[in-house]
Simulated scan of single mutants.
Amino acid sequence: MPYVNIKITKDGATSEQKALLIEGVTSLLQNVLNKNRATTFVIIDEVETDNWGIAGEQVTKIRNRKK
């Protein structure tokens, strides 16, 4: 029973893109590891950019600087 947790920043992934991620990961596990689709769980967590840090800095600040 595979469980995959995908964490992305909450800044615009569409429902369609999330559906593609879920289908793609499920298919990958089925094709590579012969896992059963019916018992494969894929969870997508969206994290606010204030709560995601890279190199000691909030993603919000990094992205604001690039604008």
Rank of each mutant, 00 (worst) to 15 (best):
L33S: 08
L28W: 09
D50K: 05
E46D: 00
L28Q: 09
K18Q: 09
D45W: 00
N51A: 13
K35A: 06
T60F: 03
I43D: 08
T26S: 08
G53E: 06
A19N: 04
V4G: 08
V59N: 08
T9D: 03
L33A: 12
N36P: 11
V32W: 04
L20S: 15
A19W: 00
M1W: 07
N51H: 14
L33T: 05
R37G: 04
T49E: 15
N31A: 05
K7W: 04
I22L: 07
L33I: 10
I6H: 00
A13P: 10
G56N: 06
T26F: 05
R63I: 13
V25P: 00
G24D: 10
Q58E: 14
N5H: 11
I22C: 12
I62F: 01
A38R: 04
L29K: 10
N5T: 14
D50F: 02
N64M: 11
V32A: 15
W52P: 13
D45E: 15
N51M: 10
I8M: 12
T9W: 10
V25F: 00
R65Q: 13
N64V: 10
V25S: 00
T40R: 03
G53K: 07
K61R: 08
W52G: 15
Y3W: 08
K18L: 08
K61Q: 11
K61W: 04
L33D: 06
F41Q: 09
N64Q: 12
N36R: 06
D45L: 12
E46I: 00
V4N: 06
Q58D: 11
I22A: 10
K67I: 12
K61V: 11
R37F: 01
T14C: 11
L21C: 03
Q30S: 08
S27M: 07
V59I: 15
V32D: 11
K18M: 11
E57N: 09
S15D: 14
T39G: 03
I6M: 09
K7T: 14
T26C: 01
K66D: 13
T9N: 09
Y3G: 06
G56F: 01
I8S: 12
A13S: 12
L21W: 02
M1T: 14
T40Q: 02
F41K: 03
I8A: 12
M1R: 05
R65V: 10
K66G: 07
S27L: 07
T26D: 03
K67A: 12
E48C: 01
